[in-house]
Amino acid sequence: MSLRVGSPVTGRVVALSAVPDPVFSQAMVGPGVAVEPVRAKADVVSPVDGKVVTLHPHAFVVATGDGAAVLVHLGIDTVKRKGEGFELHVVKGEEVRAGQRIVTWDPAEVEAAGFAPICPVIALDASADVLAGLALDADVTTNDALFDWSR
């Protein structure tokens, strides 16, 4: 089985090592990619079908039925924004479909406030060798494939 993980945002896919935060750049919580988002107000969508198991304004985790959990983090250190500029459209525990909007934000505003708006998309607790087809250096729109997670 392979789980297709879609892009939560529109932008350019880069390696996790480009993320200015050691938790992500050293893949401490799992492998994945990051998306440098287009600097315009936009909806962020779920990368997979599943349940929203963790939900913050600036980050969320969607877990599939068989336990694969994908973390989307909107910008670095954006917990400090305390939700300002993030509009949630779902609640914790809600079942969502890949491509369904979760939150609306504005990467330009986040950047203007002094935060890197880059978005790590992480296969939580996976090992790097189970990810394939990483869309590195590609321009993606929301719900385009970022990688396949072999399960």
């Binding site: 050691p22 401490m28 919580v29 198991v53 963790t54 939580l124 607790d125």
Partner: peptide
């Protein structure tokens, strides 16, 4: 913990989800 990052008296403990 996957990692521990210190910056003076602020310590970040990476514990995962």
């Amino acid at each position: 913990a996957h990692g521990v990052m210190r910056s003076g008296n602020v310590v970040q403990v990476v514990v995962g989800p």
